[in-house]
Structures are given as structure tokens and as C-alpha cells.
Design a binder for these strands. Structure first.
Lengths: 194, 194, 194, 194
DNA sequence: AATGAATGAGGTTTCATTCAT
DNA sequence: GATGAATGAAACCTCATTCAT
């Protein structure tokens, strides 16, 4: 009998962790609930105590990972630094997160390119990153340091590129280091700056 | 009794077309063979006459679409034009293909972010686009018109951005036109050029 | 609410029993899992909870029946009786088992003449009857009461004949009684004795 | 275009031969018509030109093999030889056939222990061996050279044993030679003779 | 005679979910 | 909270048979 709170195994967390691992390794279509239960060392029944359905479990996992990622990436952001430096830090943070959390990165990619990521869901889902990014680029344009261009283009030329590079690093087809990342930042900067 | 070739119902093609439509609309995990058969107006059995398994069907569909895309995108490419113009044309062709073939684009995205796209498969798969793109950027750097940078970075700053924009257009979150595309080309060009 | 153990429906046992009945009546190739499920009054799914596959189910059934048969046949065996008497008792017990368990007998015959009975399986399968029979005949030869002959020949001249006769009885082409069995024992004895 | 009769491939014979091979190797339940067609290098359709159904094909194969076996076994039978010698020759011939035709032997065993061998079929099937064997033993008893016993017992003590030994030889668990066979004949003879 | 594409019922197995304990 | 036996619809795939050519 456990006598301290910490001795209670947090089944909910174990289920989420296992789900992440299995989907990262085998994909949505090869991750049955039975495998999640077995790997988590819980019964199938208890999963339905914590999550209404498999879809709810996956959606919940997505939310938690996405929020954690946003928190991480924005952690050391400072309004004080010069604009390009702020871009550089975000760029690095984004890549760092993807590289340090390959399973999470893989899951996010799979999710966002699958039918789970339907419009209804994204409407309900409160993403705090998008408004931040919008204001980041709007601010740069208003300050006259960035070209006037569609925000979507600016995002892809910077963070979109960062994510693509991190994905290639995780796949093992491109070895990133600080220098290479900085060269990408510089090139992106050339694309964005007035 | 029809005697023309067009009267021959090409079941194999019908199956591939239906598979594309269903996966684009509903995703891998919601596209059973029974639905493909019904929608194609063929029996389930005949699918296995043309394709050894569901996986084979999906892999074959991927190959056919990818090859067609490559052919389309490279169709009007000309070595004669100045370098930036050649980039611009590829950029536009890529976007045009994605916009004119939203189902194919969607399928490619889903496939390439799913476990179907495992290393074993890509090793066997003969992609003719990658070598072309490599030589395109290597040439630009050797001519001194492009910055020296990792090819992967150059690719993302140009074609990666193009694809991302086309995807957003197809999702309805960004309305692309020639002018906007050209502004993206210009920004990419600033990123790449020496 | 029933509280006795007998109220617990032993689905595993029901599945095995039904499988035996159906295969005895209709053969391997006409005994689908769906029929086993329906006849056992269980869902198809639960069969796979107890048995990994149809083959596993059949193999398991074979093992259980074979072990039970061996136990039954050897039940009243006594080292005390004279040699011929011991032979006679084994002969009778074997026939009795086959006659009293026609479904089991039929299943064993079908199994042992089918590809299920491949060498790999028999190697793993621990048959306790074979070593017993070997020592039974070796002992008889060492005591000088039996002719020296290959064990396989001795086995067929006695127990092989017993089984064949029991099978014919079960098929209704030969009505066995104690007297007829004893006449077979006597003839077998003439074949074996020195 | 074939110009001689011998150039015409005898598809019917090829189908029967392939069926024999496949069933001997893989069993009834793993020998689909498609495999028979492929291995025979004919179309599936043509099988139905020669045989009304799969069951007909198998029944026909059984008949042909059984008749050939009977012809072979009885080939050198002579009423002239002394009784025990006649028994010995039949014994050897039976074993020789089984050993020289392992696929046929295997097929016969599988067939006769499967539901294909139902009473309706055996009633229609004109087996010329059974009447021969009956008269062989009846004659021996009438001549006073054999014990009076049920014919079924006599059959098993002689030919039943012979077949069992041949089967064991084919399975590789018992190496038969003339001497061993003769020792079995002698033992059987002791069982049968008055 | 011969082909082999085509059918579709039915085979084995999986899996999200429920529920008695 | 927790278990895991149980359900049954539905998944993928097979296969005997047919039929237009």
C-alpha cells in the first residue's frame, strides 16, 4: 500500500507518455489501445477513465505537447534584445526544442499532417504561439526593419525553415550545429530585412 | 457492343484514383479497402489482383503521383534563362502543381509524414527530383551567384517555402496570386543570392 | 446472482469442446472460427483472447486430448500382472478409449494425418506414451518373452491393430465386443511372443 | 503451332500431377485452385473444363491413384505360390508401392482420413482391392491354413501393419529393408496362421 | 480449348469500447 | 480507481467459380 502521494503511479501521465512513444515509433494506424495499455502497464479499462476515447487521448496529448513546446521556445525570449537577435534566439530555441524532443517533434508532425488536425479542432484549440508570431512580425514591419510582406511568407522564410532543418537533423540526413544554424538565420534575415 | 479502347474500364486506374480521393478526404486510417472497392465500383477481390496488399497499393499510388509531379514541375524548365528567372519558374511551377492538384498534394504530405515513408522505402524509391535540385543549387554556387550554404538550407528557403505557401492556399488560409508568389520569390532570392 | 464456481462460464473450455465437435463432424476445412464462436455462444473476439490463432487453438486442442488419452489408457496399468495380461489390458484400454471418445479419436486421426502434424510440432510436443511403449516392449524382449524385432513392428502388430479396429468400430463397419477384442489380442500375441 | 500430337501438352494430366504434389506438400487446406493453375502453367478457367469443381478434381485424383496402386500391388500376384509366399509378396508389393510413390501414399492417407472420404463417396467408389483381400483371407481360412478370425483383424495384422511401416519409412523414422520387412511378414504370419 | 480478369461471400483476425467485479 | 474478460463490427485478404473474349 503506498503511503506517500509520490508513490502513487501517475497512470494518466504514463498513458500519455506511452502513447507518444508508440505513435512516434509506429504511427497512428499501428498504435492500438491494447498496446498502449500493455506498454503503460495499466488495464485497457483505466484509459477510458482518464480519456473519453482514443481520439480524446490523442487530442489531449497533442495539446499538452504543443503547449509545452510553446512554453519552452518562448522561455528566454526578451523584448530588450535587438530585433535580429530576437529572431535568432527564437530560431535557435525552436530548433533546440525539436532536437531535444524528437518524439514530440515527430508526433506533432504526424498529427498536423493527419486528419486529426481538422479545422474544427484547430478552431477550438487555443494556440498561443500564432498570435505571438503575428505580433512579432507586425512589430518588425511597423518598426521599418522588415520588408512589408505577407505574414505567412515571413513565417515560412524563418520559422518554417528552422523546423524543416530540425526535422532533417532528427532524420539523420543533416547534422546541425550552432554555426550552420546561424548561417540559416543570416540567410533568413536577408530574406526578411528591408 | 463498344469496340473502342476507351470502353475498356481500366479498373487499376479507377482503384488508384479512388484511393487518392478517399485518402485525401479521410486519411489513411479511415480509408478501408471496402470503401475503395465500393467507390471504384469494383469488387474487393480485384484490388488484390492489381496490388499485392493495401500497403502496396498506397506505395504504388505514391510513386505514380510523385513521378507525375516531378514531370510537371520540370516541364518548362530551361537552362537558357538567367539564374533567378529559373528559380522563379521552378517556384511557380511547384506552387502551380500543388494548387492544381490539391488531392495529390494532400496525399503526398500525408504520406511523407506517415510511417509509410520509412527509410527502407525511400532507399528503393528512385526520386529524380532530388538530384536535379542538388545540381541546380550547386551550379548557382559555382557560378558565384548564390551564397555558399548547406544545400538543405537553400532548398528550404526556396522550394520549402513555396510548398508551405501552396499548402496554406489549399487549406484556404492564404489566397495566393502571381504577385504574392513573386514577392515570396524575391524574398527567397534575397536569402540565397550572394 | 450465482456465487458458485460452476456458475462461471468457462469460455476457454467451451471453445475447445466446440472445436472438437465441429472438426470431428465437419473436418478442419469446414470449421470456421465464426462457427466455433456461434456454437460456443461466445464472440469471435474472445477466442483470440485464449488462443493466439486458429492454429494455436487446434494445436492446444490436440495436446489436451492426447494427454488425456494417455492418462486414461495408462490408468489401470500394473507392473504386477503377467506380461501377456499387461498387453491385453493396454489393448483393451486403448480400444475402450477410442470407442468411448469417438470425437476425440476422430480428431486425433484427422490431426495426425494432416499437415498440422509437422515434424517441428512433434519435436516440441512432449508425448509421454512413446517412451512408455518403448520400455514396455524392450522389457518384454529382455525378459525373453517376446521375439527380437524392431519396436515399430511390435507396436503396429499390437497397438496399431487395436487402434485400427477401434476406428472401424466407430465408423460402424465392425462391431467390437470383448470376445472379438480378445481374439485380436491372442493373434497379436502369437505375432509377438517368442 | 504444335505439329505433332505429342507436342500437345496434356493439361488434364498436368493438373492432376500438380494437385497431387501440392496436396502432398501443403495439405488440402493450403492448396487453392489458383496455386494448382500457376504450378501447372494453365489458366484457372481450364481446370473447370476438365473437372466440374475442386471436389471433383480431388475425387478424380483419388480414384486414379487408388486404381494405379491396386494395379501395381496386384501385378505379380500369382495363385500358384504357396499361401505364405503369396502373403509375403503382397506385403512387399504394398510396401514397395508406398515407398516408391511417397506423394501418392501421402495423398491417399490424407484423403482417407479427411471428410472427403465420406460414406457416400466410398459407396459409389468401386474399390477392387477390398473384394480381392476378402477372398484372399476367406480362402486361407477355408483351406485351414489361417486361424478363424474376423477378416478386419486379419487385414490389420498383415496389410495394415505393412502400410504403417511404409508410412514410417517415408517419414524417415524407420529405415526399411528386405530383411526387416521379412521379419514383419514372419510375425504377421505367426498372428494369422493356425 | 483456353485465358485470366472479375466477382463477392466468407475466411481469419483486430480493435475501440464496455462492464461486471 | 482499477482490472481484463468480453463484445461484435469491421478490417484485410482469399479463393472457388464464372464468363467475356
Amino acid at each position: 500500500m503506498p503511503t506517500s502521494a509520490s508513490a502513487v503511479p501517475d497512470k494518466r501521465a504514463a498513458i500519455l507518455e506511452t502513447t507518444l512513444e508508440l505513435i512516434a515509433a509506429r504511427g497512428f494506424h499501428d498504435t492500438p489501445m491494447s498496446a498502449i495499455a500493455k506498454e503503460s502497464k495499466v488495464s485497457t479499462g483505466i484509459i477510458y477513465h482518464y480519456f473519453a476515447s482514443k481520439d480524446e487521448l490523442i487530442l489531449e496529448l497533442y495539446k499538452e505537447i504543443k503547449y509545452k513546446m510553446i512554453r519552452d521556445v518562448l522561455a528566454d525570449y526578451s523584448e530588450q534584445a535587438p530585433y535580429k537577435e530576437r529572431l535568432r534566439r527564437l530560431y535557435h530555441q525552436l530548433i533546440r526544442y525539436y532536437i531535444n524532443h524528437p518524439k514530440e517533434a515527430n508526433f506533432l508532425e504526424q498529427f498536423e499532417h493527419s486528419p486529426y488536425n481538422d479545422p474544427n479542432f484547430q478552431e477550438v484549440f487555443r494556440d498561443e504561439l500564432t498570435p505571438f508570431i503575428i505580433s512579432f512580425f507586425v512589430q518588425g514591419m511597423q518598426e521599418g526593419v522588415l520588408k512589408d510582406m505577407r505574414l505567412e511568407i515571413a513565417v515560412q522564410l524563418s520559422f518554417g525553415v528552422a523546423i524543416s532543418l530540425a526535422k532533417q537533423h532528427n532524420r539523420g540526413v543533416l547534422e546541425l550545429d550552432e554555426e550552420i544554424i546561424d548561417s540559416a538565420v543570416d540567410a533568413s534575415w536577408d530574406a526578411l530585412k528591408k
